[in-house]
């Protein structure tokens, strides 16, 4: 009888020890997996941080003719400064050009405004990986260097590819350049992507100025929008210019 009791005691003790061991093991597993999770997340974060820290746009070749911290191409010589930030892939930019472009051209002719065109690339994702926004803006910079920015800018909008398509290929960009009188140096710059890193840099400047969308239209330093931050009508734009002219 006593022998049987001892047996039961022993097996009960064994069970308790086993339970304690299991609990201890679970605790260790939980601690180590938690450490692992934190380590993985820290490493992932460091990778992201490292990618940013290693980005170097200082080698970007800024087009010689660029103004406004090397981000824009000026057209006209009027007293009121109009900054227009555009992405050549952006349909609403095209809309703005069609709607208000002629009025702006007239203001330039009348020496009322100086327009600073800032090509930016915020819609690179909308061209199936071909980065049309960057390529087209880089080509526009090359056109500016060869003295044909506005002509090329206009022909790019007239031939704007659909958002979400592959965009125009480099050969087509060069062909459009030829159609407005651009030559071999332009073609070389497009093929070599000479100004593509400049586009990335000036798009960062655009973002650092607190602008999010295209087109962003700024008259004498003041952003002009329609109601609810919509595209301003030609009327609203003209009023802003008139007000700025004083």
């Amino acid at each position: 009888m006593s022998k049987g009791n001892r047996g039961r005691d022993r097996s009960a003790a064994k069970r308790i020890v086993e339970q304690q061991n299991a609990a201890e093991r679970r605790r260790r597993v939980t601690i180590w997996t938690s450490v692992g999770v934190v380590a993985v997340l820290v490493i992932a974060g460091l990778i992201g941080w490292g990618v940013v820290a290693n980005q170097d746009n200082s080698t970007a070749s800024t087009p010689s003719v660029a103004v406004d911290e090397g981000t824009a191409f000026a057209v006209g010589s009027g007293p009121v400064t109009v900054d227009i930030y555009e992405d050549f892939m952006c349909p609403i930019c095209h809309e703005f050009e069609k709607q208000t472009g002629p009025t702006i051209a007239q203001m330039v002719t009348d020496k009322k405004v100086t327009v600073r065109y800032h090509p930016v690339s915020i819609l690179d994702r909308a061209s199936n990986g071909t980065k049309y926004s960057t390529r087209s803006a880089g080509a526009a910079a090359a056109a500016a260097v060869d003295g044909k920015f506005l002509e090329y800018h206009n022909v790019l909008f007239e031939n704007q590819p659909a958002e979400g398509s592959d965009g125009l290929d480099d050969a087509k960009l060069i062909e459009l350049g030829k159609s407005v009188g651009l030559g071999d140096s332009f073609a070389t710059a497009v093929n070599d992507k000479t100004y593509d890193s400049w586009v990335t840099k000036s798009t960062e400047t655009f973002a650092s100025r607190g602008y999010n969308g295209t087109p962003t239209i700024v008259v004498n330093g003041k952003q002009v929008t329609g109601p609810n931050e919509t595209l301003p009508t030609t009327e609203i734009f003209t009023q802003a210019v008139t007000a700025a002219a004083g």
Binding site: G45, G48, W49
Partner: peptide
């Protein structure tokens, strides 16, 4: 903006 996507993927 750079850290966030890596964190999201890792998580």
């Amino acid at each position: 903006g750079a850290v966030q996507p890596f964190l999201e993927i890792a998580l």
